[in-house]
Deep mutational scan, measured.
Amino acid sequence: MFYPNSPQTSPQLTQIPYGQQYAMMQRQIQQPYHPFATTEPQARLYPYHYQGPIQQEQGGFITQQSTAASPQYVQMRVTPVDQSIMSGYPNQTANGSSSSSFNYNIHPQQQQQQQQQQQQLRHHAMPVGSVPLQDDRYRKQLIVNYLAPDVTSTDLHELFSRFGELDGARIIYDKQTNMSKGYGFVYFCHAEDAKEAVERMSGYEFHGKWLKVGYSTNPLNIVPSNSSPYVHAGSRGAAG
């Protein structure tokens, strides 16, 4: 039997160049792979992502010199942007860049009308829970959420009447099932009393439920100042 490094198959040491006398086997001759043993700084910083320098080929596509990437890492192929796409944008300079302001050559009167329309939209648009300043009635009506099913309009009136005089209180019921929808409205005579009720009743436990109280901004629920107070009856038909 002959071994790869046996004296019968191995040459004389004098015939082997210096430095390879003890590297006779194939696994010894093959050098191990060192990912950080390279002179390129990109490979030292990113050993798993770097795959060699990027070269520009004919046709405008950018390719990489090395083989496919590892399945664990996804390499994105980048193509140059066609400058003709950006030619339609206004205020574009000769080098292809555009300024931040756009001039669509709008007539001054049209621009003024658009600004007025935007101001009107901001004036009428009102986020949930906010209180408008032009109508004091919005500051007097509250919406009470997360009410228990057994709470009546009379219970709601008695709960909030300790903060001040009320114009009314009612629970909203479903017309088909005649069941409470879980929320109601309270109408105060003074805005200061309503503000105190919002601050003190939010998070209050009532009939096993934690109440959420806020201003009601729905104009359909506003009680006119010259109208008669609501009837605080315990029956659902009268309260709904």
Rank of each mutant, 00 (worst) to 15 (best):
V198P: 03
F160A: 02
F61M: 07
L166D: 05
P108E: 12
H232I: 11
R27D: 13
G129I: 03
G184H: 02
T154P: 11
V231Q: 05
Y204F: 09
P47R: 05
P11K: 08
Y183D: 00
S153D: 02
D167S: 02
L159D: 04
S99C: 14
T63N: 11
P32S: 05
T217D: 01
M179S: 07
R236E: 01
G234V: 04
V186C: 09
F163W: 05
F206I: 01
S227L: 10
P71H: 09
T217R: 03
K181A: 01
S130D: 09
V128K: 13
G184Q: 10
I171C: 07
Q28E: 07
T9Q: 13
V213K: 00
S130V: 08
P229E: 04
Q110V: 09
S216M: 00
C189E: 01
S70V: 12
S97H: 14
G19R: 08
I29N: 11
V78F: 15
T154L: 04
Q30V: 14
I171W: 02
S100G: 12
E192W: 11
I54H: 08
Q111V: 12
T93W: 15
Q56N: 12
F206G: 01
A23T: 12
Q26D: 09
Q12L: 07
Q141I: 00
L45G: 04
G208C: 10
G237R: 08
V186Q: 01
P4H: 13
D150R: 05
P224K: 12
M179G: 07
V223G: 04
P7W: 13
P80K: 05
M24R: 05
K209Y: 00
L13V: 07
E158H: 08
A69Y: 14
A197P: 04
P17I: 13
G52I: 13
Q28I: 09
N178M: 13
P4E: 02
L220Q: 13
G60I: 15
G59N: 11
R170A: 00
G240K: 02
I62E: 01
C189T: 07
V81H: 08
G208F: 00
E205Y: 14
A148I: 01
S98K: 05
P4C: 07
G96F: 15
L166S: 03
P90M: 12
D150M: 14
F206L: 07
I29E: 15
S87L: 11
Y48P: 05
Y73C: 09
K140Q: 11
Q72T: 08
D155R: 02
A197E: 02
Q58A: 07
A194I: 01
Y73M: 15
H157G: 07
E165M: 09
L13P: 08
R44I: 15
E158N: 11
S227N: 12
P127E: 03
A23C: 15
Q20E: 02
S66C: 12
Y18S: 07
P127S: 06
